[in-house]
Simulated assay, not measured.
Amino acid sequence: MIKFFRKIRQKTLTENKFGKYLLYAIGEIVLVVIGILIALSINNWSNNKELRHTEQMYLLSLQSEFQTNLNKINESISENKVLMIDIEQMLTLFDNNVRDTISDKEISDIMFSIFGNTVSYQPSKGVLTDIISSGNLNLIQNEQLRQHLASFESTNDIFELQENGINSAKEEMIRLLNINGSIRKVVIHRGLNFKHQSISDTINNKNLFSLTEFENNLLNYYLSIRGANGSKVFGGIKEKIELILIELDSEINK
């Protein structure tokens, strides 16, 4: 087509027909511009297709990661409920009438369950961290989903503050156990045998339940765990994860 216009242009110049030459020159320019626009359009379409493919891969990876996080938070909530039941049982031992009906081994079992477990939640953030740190979060077109993903880290920060209080109360109880009780007796009752006698063999862990300080720290521990399992911490994290999963599923299935 361009060769056609070029021949006409040469002919019109030879015949000294400037008006026709100008018309065909403009036509040639228009064709060039159209060709460039078509090439740019094809290139943009190709780039957009590649970006949407990358977005889809991110969405699928995030879906897998947040499903794992949902399983983790549900497991943590369930474990905390069991731990709270054990603590509630231990709190009854501050009643002399209850404590006198419990054997030393039963007390050791309760103490082992409480001190041997911890409140924790470690979300998987590899995919999300990679997307944010690489600056590719904007590849996700859904603005609301982007906002929820960007703020997910701050949701977990709430638990970290609660976790500090929980660990502090637990450490204080262990300190009191070290001073006033016998860890050796607890592990013996759990099946660990020692070859030699010990000065702690005469210590009775029931003595701990005559200490107001131990009760206060145990109660503080209980309330902190209960708070972590509530709607503002684990409940809030779970709600955020479920919301993100719904939005991811919607985007993937578009």
Rank of each mutant, 00 (worst) to 15 (best):
K170I: 09
N117H: 13
T129C: 03
L91H: 01
V119R: 03
D130Q: 15
L139M: 14
L149T: 00
H148Y: 08
L83Q: 11
D157K: 12
I87A: 02
I131W: 07
V119E: 08
N96H: 12
I158R: 11
I102G: 01
E163H: 10
N136D: 11
T92D: 12
N164V: 09
F94P: 03
D109V: 11
Q89A: 13
F152A: 10
N142H: 12
R175S: 15
L176V: 00
P123T: 10
T92V: 07
G126N: 13
S134Q: 06
I85D: 15
T118C: 01
D100Q: 15
M90Y: 06
Q89D: 13
Q147G: 05
N96M: 06
F94H: 09
G116I: 10
N96I: 06
I166R: 04
P123E: 10
M84R: 11
T118E: 14
G126S: 13
L145V: 06
F115S: 03
S168Y: 11
N156K: 07
K125T: 13
F94W: 10
S133V: 11
L139A: 00
S124Q: 13
E106K: 12
L176D: 02
I85K: 14
I174E: 15
L149N: 00
F115Q: 05
E153S: 10
G116D: 02
D130Y: 13
L177Y: 01
E153I: 10
